[in-house]
Nucleic acid binder design. Structure first.
Lengths: 214, 214, 214, 214
DNA sequence: CATGAATGAGTGTTCATTCAT
DNA sequence: TATGAATGAACACTCATTCAT
């Protein structure tokens, strides 16, 4: 609509350069833009148009890198999930219950970043679009790994057996609660509640996991 | 959710009868259809068109009963929240920790109906549309009431004080976790995990709240 | 720029080619179609759908070139008004009353083209949408210019002073009358009346402007 | 234009009584409301809904009295035209040119009421909907009558023959011009121009019709 | 790789009109 | 006569996607 100056195609427009980037870089630019839009508006309400302009490229170019909106979404979710997969291995070699609890609380609540909130929200709101991703995330190997980890400590006698150690994925429940609070209320309004949850969680874990002195 | 299909009159479709109902009945039919659609697709992706046809009426008729999609949504959410307000008063007069835990677990997990799941999902995905409803639901008087309740029992000596009784809204964390699981995985796939969570929750509550024998 | 095949395509509808034109050309095609529709039906009754199909493009494409129906209308009216601004300067250097009258009548009634009719109709029916355009067209500099012109001739003694020369915009009244007649009755039905008006106008102007012999 | 609001408060609306009126009265109430709406918005943009509520009745009741929107419009226009048919008979028995001009100017410009503006606007904007009405209004018997009237005075020697008397419908041109001005600019903004037109018209008529003294 | 022009399908919403009461 | 509920058809507008360059 604007460029009426048809005389000089290659030059004359300082603003919009046709920059050619490697596919990987462009893809990532698009995914970053997509995360922002999807997170703010949800899958349906987010528009390719805004994602493209947020990424600084044309709408059509999006389709050079992704087959469809769905494809883009799936790629994004997969990437996010991989990236934010909690590093349970940190819990592998701890010497005491106190250290275990400390590390657990730290990384669980430290992981409450905007990105994690974003991915959780997307899983909840749009997860039905890609059931296979859901399964990978919620159930699956990770869960079994965690269970094995804690049972190892129980056998070693470092951790007291309890209903909690028997179904250890329960340990993440308060984190999910905090996540939902933050998701619904917003970071600032939820801050107080999240902090209280975290402290309560820490105390209860210590209480429950510490072997009873005899 | 799909039970609407079987709910439709057994008569075949070719007949287009113009059924005339009272506003209250029609409104409720529309709200029921709207709940199903909003819940399955979210606010934006749900279409008036499908809501109307699910309710068995014309699209235009929707606008006879609601001013807009937003109006419909607000009415729906308000109704759902009023309907599903949990009845904590059941916990008022219990004689023992066991009874307290029993009732708590029963109504908390018994409340995991499709309706509750639906309202929670809508709050999470579309709550930003109506901040005032959010506050009413998440924070507010209800929370203070629960805290007062448990502290009463602690003072009576019926319940052992612990980090949990100090911040009692923590008690709902596993329920939220179960809700999210059910929301994301679907009723059937989540059933096992929900049951495990419920049992673990019951055991841990008993463990934590029962006064230590001396 | 390559010459666009502006002639009507030899083949009719079955072929759906996606013709790609420069924005300027498409915009003008749309405006032409819009003029026809607005003129025939008025702003409200004209539909983007019909404008699009008259222009031979899809409805959506209209919105590639115009932001809204209002935008399209404003652009159209502005263009029409610029295009049809009457050229009063032709009256600047005439030698006699007869020549003045001749030229005045010629261009005033010669200007009764379909375009002029169209713009006048749009101004009347939809002018309230754009008050600023109205003022530009009806009142404003043009009027003062005309008055100055005739007073120059009066001072030179070429034209006899009369109530008409004192309020010279009056001279356009019969043209407006003819315009309205044509607008309401249609070109063909109004032809006779317009011709009669024109001749009467010519005679009366000669009569009124020619200085009295002594 | 908006004066209609204050001009016709049909009834106070505290109680919705189901008042039963004679068909004639109801019809007229509807037509009054319709005039206001059609005049303010044009045929297409005017809605039965608003016409009905302005008339203080239900939408459906409109269809008890009129077959369709078109029917309503036609009835309205017909009525308006009959009502506002200028009373040329007042010019039948005048004794002098001055009296003739005086009466002519008085009733022509005195007829520039809101109603007349309304009908003219509707004829221009929506006249194409009912061509037969147009013919009745613009051409037809009235025109011949006027011509006969002025020729009578010419024969009597009271009025000087001129191009104007030969095509006397020309005499209404300035009035049409004034009407259009008022229509487009609004009553207030056009007031100055209308007054100037009227006075110029009066002077020119006197000038043209008064027999030359010998 | 990149894009602007183009489009089919769909959106929420309005409206003249009909029907059952 | 009068009405509120109901609807088909249309509206302006948007969007994910495609195509020619």
């Amino acid at each position: 609509m604007k460029s009426t100056d048809s005389a000089t195609p290659p030059q004359a427009e300082p603003r919009k350069k046709r920059t050619r980037l490697t596919p990987e870089v462009r893809r990532q630019q698009i995914l970053d833009a997509a995360l922002a839009e999807f997170n703010a508006l949800g899958f349906t309400a987010a528009s390719i148009s805004k994602i493209a302009s947020r990424a600084g490229i044309s709408k059509a170019n999006v389709y050079v890198h992704f087959a469809s909106k769905d494809d883009m979404f799936e790629t994004l979710l997969d990437q996010l999930m991989t990236r934010s997969r909690t590093n349970w291995s940190q819990l592998q070699d701890v010497a005491s219950v106190d250290e275990l609890v400390e590390r657990l609380i730290d990384f669980a609540y430290g992981g409450l970043t905007d990105d994690t909130i974003a991915i959780t929200r997307l899983l909840i709101t749009e997860g039905h679009r890609m059931p296979h991703l859901l399964e990978k995330w919620m159930i699956g190997q990770a869960k079994a790994d965690r269970q094995a980890l804690i049972e190892g400590y129980v056998e070693k006698g470092m951790v007291k057996p309890s209903p909690l150690t028997e179904h250890f994925s329960f340990v993440m429940a308060p984190v999910v609660y905090a996540t939902v609070a933050q998701m619904v209320l917003g970071r600032d309004k939820a801050a107080g509640e999240v902090e209280a949850i975290k402290e309560t969680h820490r105390k209860l874990l210590t209480l429950l996991l510490t072997p009873t002195e005899r």
